[in-house]
């Protein structure tokens, strides 16, 4: 259990780094590390397939996409953030931490446990036979994403000016 809590804390720390670091490449990399930690947490929660997806797709593919974008938008990306934002962050974080701890404990501890009993079947059966509709929707989402990229990077056939 202690390991799990250390991992979770690491996840939070790296996520916070991802938004606080000024250098975008470093931010994207700490996001990737956070994903990696999340993948390990998934693995320890007996969700190996989700862990593999988290590590390969989120920590891998999405990081590559981020770095590609950062490289493509390199010139003139010196956006100055307000200084106050970073200074105020720990204050708000601690404030939220306290509220979060109190609320979560009081709200969720009363929820009774579900009737125990291991799930039937294997992961493949659950994915393909119970959640078949999700696979159809996944096809839709992927199609939408591909078409969106096609539409946004198309060459304009003629310039329309307003």
């Amino acid at each position: 259990m202690a390991i799990q809590i250390i991992l979770l804390c690491g996840l939070v720390i790296f996520s916070a780094l991802a938004i606080l670091l000024k250098d975008l490449i470093k931010a994207a990399l700490s996001l990737a590390v956070a994903s990696l930690l999340l993948g390990i947490i998934f693995f320890r929660l007996a969700a190996p397939y989700a862990a593999v997806f988290e590590i390969s797709v989120v920590a891998g593919l999405i990081t590559v996409l981020f770095i590609l974008t950062i490289a493509l938008t390199k010139k003139g990306d010196e956006v100055t953030e307000a200084r106050l934002v970073k200074l105020a962050f720990p204050v708000f974080l601690i404030l939220f931490l306290v509220i979060d701890g109190l609320v979560m404990k009081s709200l969720l501890q009363k929820i009774p446990a579900l009737p125990a009993g291991p799930e039937a079947g294997t992961f493949g059966e659950v994915l393909w036979k119970q959640r078949t509709f999700d696979l159809v929707a996944q096809v839709g989402v992927i199609l939408a994403g591909v078409l969106a990229v096609l539409a946004l990077f198309r060459k304009k056939e003629e310039d329309k000016d307003e």
């Binding site: 929707a137 989402v141 994403g145 078409l147 969106a148 539409a151 946004l152 304009k156």
Partner: peptide, 18 residues
């Protein structure tokens, strides 16, 4: 999920004029 399918398509359509 289907909410997200419709939403992803609509982001691209809103930006369609570029």
């Amino acid at each position: 999920l289907f909410l997200e399918v419709a939403a992803v398509a609509s982001y691209a359509l809103v930006a369609f004029g570029l």
